Amino acid sequence: MAVTHSEAPAGAAPVKETPQYCAQQPVTKPLLPPDLSSDRLSAILVGRTKWVNGTVLRYFLLNEGNGHRAQLNAVRQAFRDWKDIGIGLDFVEVNQPSQAEVRIGFDWNDGSWSYVGRDVLNISTLQRTMNFGWDLTSRHGRSTALHEIGHTLGFAHEHQNPFAGIVWDEEKVYAALAGPPNNWPREQTFHNILRKLSTSEVEGSIWDPLSIMEYPFPPGLIIQPEKYRSGIADPLDLSALDKKYVQQWYPALTAKPAELHPLQSMELDLAAGGQKDFAIVPTETRMYEIGTFGDSDVVMVLFEEEVDGEEQTRYFTADDDSGAASNARLKVRLFEGRRYVLRTRLYSAWGPGKAAIMVW
């Protein structure tokens, strides 16, 4: 369905003037061998920003400046809205920035922005990974909170989807964004609006103009498709496709992890993007090695789930062998009486045979 001023669906609001926009932070590009097959390259690029399912993302709210109670509660509610879709990720608020993967500021002089997916792990614990630059208690503000959290979950801007087929009146776009309320330089406008993602970075082949990751646009900026010349309405909630894709990447956790014993090889019979989880319960305290075998690209993350009888989920260590000829390896000291969960997500299996995993 066309999303125009006259045909805006329920929950979407037409826009007449250029609104304030999110300024997504640059995404880190992995250094990959130039001779990777297109299928292998695409699997890595699509999956690299996503978390392993079952990750507990801890967030810290900087309660200063404009971070008063109503703004903090709006962010908390946005996290609940994503969780209530029924996903396997969890979100926990903590009271120290050093404990948090996601650190959220409320500097209204710095706009709204977020780093994307696992890139937040590369940011110093002294710095924000997300900021909100305007009131989150309005309808547009609520959608902003959902949008920025979407970036943290690994999703890019939807209007930069190469399958959207958008032809911009580029100089009008630059002019609109150069003025208030955004006041963006040309390079920022290009990075956040005009730059199209590579088809190898995008999952699926459908553009979703209702996505919470879509910008609203006023009339006059889009030349094609013709039905969007009158603008794109403001998506105010998670779309059906938003929910489909986040559930696809982070399905609800139902099965218990299979127990992985020393010197026991377990097969990773997975499709691209699939994940298997394993429980490791050491019978002695010592150094262990955990590794994959076979021609595969995986990210492997070890969590500590039980310490002295207290259940918790705490990141321990990880390895990512995507694009490499070698396999993922962890060398760690594990403790008797503690329970660990190893979550392994497959980017791609690119050679003969099936991949496997072992602890020894």
Rank of each mutant, 00 (worst) to 15 (best):
P257T: 03
P262V: 09
I222P: 05
Q25V: 06
S198E: 04
Y215C: 03
D81Q: 14
Y288R: 07
P218L: 09
E187G: 03
L241M: 10
I206E: 14
A8H: 06
Q127E: 15
D169Y: 09
G111F: 11
F335G: 00
R142I: 09
E171D: 13
A175C: 04
G111N: 10
V202P: 01
A43D: 11
D81N: 12
V3G: 00
L210W: 01
H157N: 14
S326N: 12
E304M: 09
A2K: 12
E289S: 11
L268C: 06
G111L: 08
E93I: 07
G150R: 10
P30E: 14
Y340L: 04
N161I: 11
R58S: 10
E171G: 00
I212Q: 02
F293A: 14
G220L: 10
Q248Y: 13
G11P: 04
E201F: 01
A2W: 10
P180K: 12
V92T: 15
P30L: 13
I232G: 00
E214F: 01
D84E: 12
Q247V: 00
K354H: 06
T49Y: 01
G204D: 08
Q71C: 04
M287Y: 05
N109W: 00
M213I: 04
T137W: 03
W168D: 08
N63G: 06
D242W: 13
L197G: 02
L72Q: 15
E7L: 15
A43C: 08
G179S: 14
L32P: 05
G67R: 06
V299F: 05
D169T: 02
L334H: 08
M287E: 14
D90E: 15
H147D: 08
E259L: 12
E170C: 09
R339M: 04
G86A: 03
S239W: 04
T55E: 06
W350F: 15
T285K: 10
D234V: 00
H5R: 15
H191C: 05
S6W: 02
P219T: 05
T254V: 15
S200H: 00
R186I: 13
R229S: 04
T313D: 01
